[in-house]
Amino acid sequence: MHTPETVVGIDIDLQPGHAIRRLHQISVGVFLQEMGDLGITPVQYAALQVVANQPGIDQRTLARTIALDASTTGGVVDRLEARGWLERRTAREDRRTRQLHITPAGLDGLALAVPAMLRAQEQILAPLSPVQRQQFMSLLNTLVTENNELSRAPSELTGKPSTAAV
């Protein structure tokens, strides 16, 4: 049996997991506010941006790239396809593989989303000085990279993320 001394007195606000969860809530809220009527979620944005950067990527590779499980990624692609922003095409070299391509409407939507995404990032980091932003992003990327394999949906890390955008 546990005594109150073993569980009482832990300050939740000093726990990194709690702070990270709170920052995630804030980040999503700011992102959605900046997107406004465009109605793109952070995960949809990530999928669109990756497909725009890597035309013809297959859905399984997309899932690993943005660190989502396959079924969640399938739902994201379904919603973007229903909007007319992504399309699935059968791969010529392997008829079982479906490649993803951004449509002209998807490119237009992404072009509208990028400034909103950048505003959201700026707003989230606004309390930090330029030096603190670089330090924060460096430390954040270290935590993500070093703990990647602990994720339920590990990302395919392609190298150390750049902090140039902050």
Rank of each mutant, 00 (worst) to 15 (best):
I26S: 07
A19W: 08
A19H: 10
L38P: 01
Q33S: 10
I10Q: 07
Q15W: 09
I26L: 13
L38A: 05
M35H: 08
Q15P: 01
F31V: 02
L32M: 12
I26T: 14
Q25W: 14
M35F: 00
R22H: 10
R22L: 12
V30T: 09
F31G: 02
Q25R: 12
E34D: 09
I10V: 15
L38R: 05
V8E: 06
H24L: 11
V28H: 04
M35Q: 15
L23F: 12
G9L: 01
R22A: 13
G9D: 10
V8D: 10
Q15K: 04
A19D: 12
L23R: 14
D13P: 01
Q33K: 12
G36L: 04
L32E: 15
A19R: 15
G9N: 01
G29Q: 07
I10E: 09
L14D: 13
V7T: 14
G17H: 08
V28P: 01
L14N: 15
H18G: 00
M35A: 02
Q25V: 05
S27K: 08
Q25F: 10
I12Q: 06
E34H: 02
V8M: 03
G29Y: 06
R22V: 14
T6L: 04
Q33M: 07
F31I: 00
R21N: 14
V28L: 07
S27H: 09
L32T: 08
R22P: 01
D37A: 09
L32I: 04
E34L: 01
V30S: 03
H24V: 13
D13Y: 06
L23E: 13
D37W: 04
F31D: 06
Q15Y: 05
I26R: 06
L23C: 07
